[in-house]
C-alpha cells in the first residue's frame, strides 16, 4: 500500500459527474413524461434519486474534498454500486439512454480508480 497522495488528475471523476448528470436529466424526463410506460413509477423515482447521488459522489471525488483516504475509498466503492445499481434499474426500466449514461459513468469510475488518484490507499 502506498502513502495517501493527492490525485494527479480528476478526469475520471469528472467523467462520472458528467455522465451521471446527463443520466439525472434523462431520469427526470422519464419520470415526468407521461406515456413512456414508466412515468411516475417507483422505478423512475428510484433511478432519478440514485443518479443524483452518483453525481454528488462524483463531485466529491472530483473536487478532492477533504476526505481521508479510506473515506475516499469507501465513497468510490459506493459510487460503483450506485452506477451499477442505476444501470441495472435502467435496464429493467428499458431506459436505454440512462443505461448508456451509466455505462459511460462506469468508464469514468474505472479511469478514476486506475489512473487518477489511489482511492483505496
Amino acid at each position: 500500500m502506498s502513502e495517501i497522495s493527492e490525485p494527479r488528475t480528476a478526469g475520471g471523476a469528472w467523467l462520472v459527474v458528467a455522465a451521471s448528470a446527463v443520466g439525472s436529466v434523462v431520469a427526470l424526463v422519464n419520470l415526468v413524461n407521461d406515456g413512456n410506460g414508466i412515468a411516475w413509477s417507483f422505478g423512475a423515482w428510484l433511478v432519478l434519486v440514485s443518479s443524483l447521488l452518483v453525481v454528488v459522489a462524483g463531485v466529491i471525488l472530483a473536487l478532492h474534498l477533504a476526505l481521508s483516504g479510506w473515506l475516499r475509498g469507501v465513497l468510490a466503492i459506493l459510487l460503483l454500486l450506485g452506477i451499477l445499481g442505476t444501470g441495472a434499474a435502467a435496464y429493467f426500466l428499458t431506459a436505454w439512454i440512462l443505461l448508456v449514461a451509466m455505462g459511460v459513468a462506469l468508464v469514468g469510475w474505472v479511469i478514476h480508480v486506475a489512473a487518477d488518484p489511489s482511492p483505496l490507499d
Binding site: 410506460g37 414508466i38 413509477s41 417507483f42 422505478g43 423512475a44 428510484l46 434499474a89 429493467f92 426500466l93 428499458t94
Partner: peptide, 8 residues
C-alpha cells in the same frame, strides 16, 4: 410483467 415500472 411490469411492476414498479420495471419490466421482467
Amino acid at each position: 410483467v411490469q411492476k414498479y415500472g420495471f419490466y421482467m
